[in-house]
Design a binder for these strands. Sequence first.
DNA 1: GGTTGACTGTGACGCTACGTCAACTTTTAC
DNA 2: GTAAAAGTTGACGTAGCGTCACAGTCAACC
Lengths: 248, 248
Amino acid sequence: MEWSIQELARAAGTTSRTLRHYGQLGLLPPTRIGRNGYRYYDRESLLRLQRILLLRELGLGLPAIAEVLDGQRDTAVALRTHVRLLEQERQRLARQIESVTTTLRRMEGGEQLMAEEMFDGFDHTRYAGEVTQRWGRDAWEKGDRWWRSLSDAEKKAFQQQQLDIAADYGRACLAGRSPESDEVQAITRRHVAWLSSTTTPTKGYLVGLGEMYVADPRFTANYDRHGAGTAVLVRDAMKVYAERHLRD
Amino acid sequence: MEWSIQELARAAGTTSRTLRHYGQLGLLPPTRIGRNGYRYYDRESLLRLQRILLLRELGLGLPAIAEVLDGQRDTAVALRTHVRLLEQERQRLARQIESVTTTLRRMEGGEQLMAEEMFDGFDHTRYAGEVTQRWGRDAWEKGDRWWRSLSDAEKKAFQQQQLDIAADYGRACLAGRSPESDEVQAITRRHVAWLSSTTTPTKGYLVGLGEMYVADPRFTANYDRHGAGTAVLVRDAMKVYAERHLRD
DNA sequence: GGTTGACTGTGACGCTACGTCAACTTTTAC
DNA sequence: GTAAAAGTTGACGTAGCGTCACAGTCAACC
């Protein structure tokens, strides 16, 4: 008993393109190829295809499926590894959803924007130091223009972003990550991106700001509410980031 | 005041490659291009880039961001649309995780496999009708061989798959979907794929099976426990699917 | 025997948002 | 003057196929 590619596809509820794809990957080679080049499959192929589709429904990648089918990996082990990835993805999604809905909810509530709350405890647009040196005397005015150019939703999002970053630092601190770790540095990259909305983060600015996070109780409180020691982690992470990526 | 691509990228916490990409999409064109071909950006560019990165962090796609920045769409509207997509994705993920973990848990529990439970109330490998006509007398034996070829995890997954399919039918029924709807037909495609593990679903087989789902109380109970009327929906959906895709 | 229609084959592009070379030119620094 | 740093365009890779385009094969009907 032998089927053409279309027949097998229909029997298994998939498409011929998919079967060609699997053939190309070596995941499901045809059992026979006719002189005309046609692919033919037998019952064994159908069984193998079933296992492939079953595992694919669980979200496994095709290379992982290939290993399972070839007996190189145990199905249960592969699934356990896989479910961890799914969990991570779910958490990432959940945080993103929370971030967006919070932004929206605040926006719809028509909540007033308070400058102090918008930032990490400090209005960087008004920080005269580096800013005025770099931008001249109209820097302040432009900072205001920038701020007014944002829609309400974006203002809220901007605020939310800072809260998210602080929360992520807090989680990393709890998890015992070092300031040099990729994980923490990734947060710092977002942190710098966020900062750069309002000022130009140079090496000196970043290091100095980090010091202030620890020295000034307003900043410290802002970060340490996510867990004691977070502000210190932030400071160290900023120093590492500045030395790796920034100049001036 | 003007920056090179690298300077802008560092200021905003992103990469020059990203800026070139945005330039290519027309999302963030350079304000000036030197005779040497170098891209130069100004303060407006930075502000625009900030808005882009902010929305990107919320998970919006670049085309959607472009519409928001160009004022074609309201930020809040875009975010609300977006959050619905995120929710859907989260539900999909949650179901998949549940499916995998349930499979694993049952496997670890060493639960006995009962043939009746494995299927939708009917052991298709033993259905003598179409099967023997098509496969001859050793069909039965091959069905058994197929079954034994599966690992424990896969047996459980197979079982779980049927439960998931029935549950999805139930949800679709509750939501009032018609048998012809894309949503229901997509479930039926999975249903047929599942069936084809054990038998060869021809047009006649599928239609007949659908009738049995409604006529035989064991089947009906199996589907209607997800909501009254589900079995009927399944029957109609199978008929539609069979006439659209199958022959014999 | 010719035409039609259903299938088949092999490429190859598209999708997301860039990362990562490669090959080559310009600017900057010593 | 030369080498390092930064700039350019171009192209591939990513996951898993969907979707043409172009061409050959096969069974059926007139």
